[in-house]
Design a protein around this nucleic acid. Sequence first.
DNA 1: ATGGTCGCTTGGCGA
Length: 265
Amino acid sequence: MILKLATWNINSIRSRLEHVLSFLDHEQPDILLLQETKCDDAQFPTDAFVTTPYNISKYGQKSYNGVAILSKVTVDEVKTNFPDNPCEDQARFLEIACMTSIGYSRIISVYVPNGGEVGSDKFIVKLKFYDALIAYFLSIKKHDEHLIIGGDFNVAPFDIDVYSPHDLKNSLCFTLEEKSKMRSLLNQGFEDLYRLCNPSGQEYSWWDYRAGAFEKNLGMRIDTILARPHSANILSNCYIAKSYRELDKPSDHVPVIAEFTEERQ
DNA sequence: ATGGTCGCTTGGCGA
């Protein structure tokens, strides 16, 4: 049995609807985690998905942020917040629990705050968001269910994850303070599935719209999928679907895809 | 690279 799970910051579900439908059709993931849907739940184009095999769990707000999870399986449980979230008025977190082909699973789509300017009030909130998120993840880890977290973490954790560690020193998403938060999360037993499958891969998940960044490959790997070791043990592949950045009117992020294979008797 | 380009919404803000 295989579970295929993807995460994608789409920068508006209404602007990227055709790309998302095409992605689902071509990749056939069992679960797709979305970030930056940028609309409230009433504006979400649910009608466009009625002919697809996907159920929609969504947590949106007007204009900004917004997360959703599309799943082929039905969902037992939905949460839209976690304890001590420093920006709980913003739609940045969505958790579902469901039975999947690899066993009972708790799956989270998260959109970590960008942080504005380094050292700003928003930057401080970003760091606090990480503290609360890490505490929450540690509180819900169990041996009898999978815990898989995908999203836009807005941090490139190591030098290999950016185009130029020298040029980006002390810049947003690559300050030591931000990297320390992401590394702390990884060090507490959450595997970075892309890095696990690609120990020396220097690929990015986001390129700025400005200044021809994609054409020059000036990107950062700030989107990924995390899982507990017992889930990572059955990971068969994890990869970045770079070609989605080459489409007309692309998102500035591309999908990250993980495949788990569970041997069944 | 103190500019550059998107999306949401119509004046800027957020990224």
